[in-house]
Design a protein around this nucleic acid. Structure first.
Lengths: 231, 231
DNA sequence: CGCCGCCTTGACTCCCTTCAATGCGAGTGG
DNA sequence: CCACTCGCATTGAAGGGAGTCAAGGCGGCG
């Protein structure tokens, strides 16, 4: 059930979802290195100095904030190829933690930013990343602010399936708690929403963390707000 | 309900909160013009082609999304100096509407982006804007996802006061509906939260849209989650 | 086998929404 | 000037959806 990670020098070439050119990647990689994290390990903390930028090589990482009373909000999940951990501040704004075992490429922040500034292609890529991130953050604001629990969960499953480009054997990498903290719900509500979707035969689950979309139009309808009550 | 546009060459000078240098501003302004909107008028729609970037000269603008069922989520409010309306997509992601009467500087998108790319100072400024925007979006995710109604309203008032750099005669530019749509609440809940804060003498209101902070530590405590129940 | 972490389910509570009515200030026209 | 209206804000009562608290259930692993 876990992601297997072994150091493999042959995997130095860009991973699938890496979106900037080989040459630039090589140039950036020169001053970077790869670190390995086990599921649950922390990469950096909320208040820590932000000396590096990171890129997921393999596995899944989450970024989150914790409130005084322990409530958490997961800002985003990152998969292979995603850049994260950059901020204009001296400190990190979030805590980053490995969801699965993963390999992370670390770029010294100064060097990285200098190279981004120097290369038009890179800076265009970087800008694009930022804007996409902003767009996703706002989609999620709509989701959290205006959608019912079952709508949020349905939307979340849809995105998972899209990201994995599959309708069957879609893997849920994160725990129910992570999902809840991402969607602004409690773990129990996430469970109940999943159960409801199963009952209505919208999805089918072969294990707690693997599902298939059984009725895609209906899933989209639920995500869009078709009054699929939870009781 | 449509946008009236009047060019006004005399207003070329930079407004107060303009944060990039006069020289750059002048260069950018050369290919731009100022348009005036009355409160409630729409600047652009969600699906529209994004041919321009905008900057608030005076007044307040809101960007929002509308769901099929009419529910709205206000992504952000912009005041004097704020850039908005840029996206990596060909279409606008939000609808922008004047909250108060306002003057908006319009930059042709292509030219603007080209100049940003050409000038290191400008592109640094632009990057900073984007990151700040992202940071705020995520703060709001925490707020909407994990805070009670009264916490959200208290946080909102605090930000208003901060933005206006004042504790008394703080002006609430937007309607209760706008606040509700911004905070992921209903208009009634916003009202009740305000009433509760008045009752507890945390704030005082001299009119429906003007307030003073009567007890700042307590306001912060409420925003931070001190269990200030609403009943 | 038995422990442990994660997930699921149930019962009850409560905060926020919904529905509905009333208040209130500004602008308009008689 | 005042009656009228219209949009916005406020308040009340009732109901529901998600949170809370509390028990299991299930699977992996020593």
């Amino acid at each position: 059930m876990h992601t297997e990670i072994r150091k493999d020098p042959h995997q130095i070439e860009a991973c699938d979802r890496m979106r900037f050119s080989r040459a630039l990647d090589a140039e950036l990689a020169a001053s970077s290195w790869v670190t390995h994290l086990k599921a649950g390990e922390t990469l950096y903390l909320e208040t820590e100095r932000a000396d590096y930028c990171y890129q997921v090589f393999s596995g899944v990482v989450k970024e989150y904030n914790t409130l005084e009373d322990g409530r958490r909000q997961v800002a985003d999940f990152y998969g292979a190829g995603d850049l994260f951990g950059f901020s204009e501040r001296a400190e990190q704004l979030h805590t980053a933690e490995a969801v699965t075992d993963c390999a992370i490429r670390c770029y010294p922040r100064e060097t990285f930013m200098a190279k981004v500034a120097a290369s038009p292609a890179l800076s265009a890529y970087f800008l694009d990343t930022l804007m996409t991130r902003l767009e996703r953050a706002r989609e999620r604001m709509v989701m959290i602010g205006r959608m019912s629990a079952i709508q949020r969960v349905a939307s979340f499953l849809r995105r998972l399936a899209d990201d994995q480009d599959s309708r069957r054997n879609v893997h849920i990498f994160m725990s129910r708690q992570d999902i809840a903290d991402h969607l602004g719900l409690t773990i129990e509500t996430v469970c109940r929403a999943l159960t409801e979707l199963k009952k209505q035969q919208v999805i089918a689950m072969s294990a707690a963390r693997v599902f298939a979309i059984a009725d895609e139009p209906r899933l989209e309808a639920v995500a869009a707000g078709a009054r699929a009550r939870m009781h």
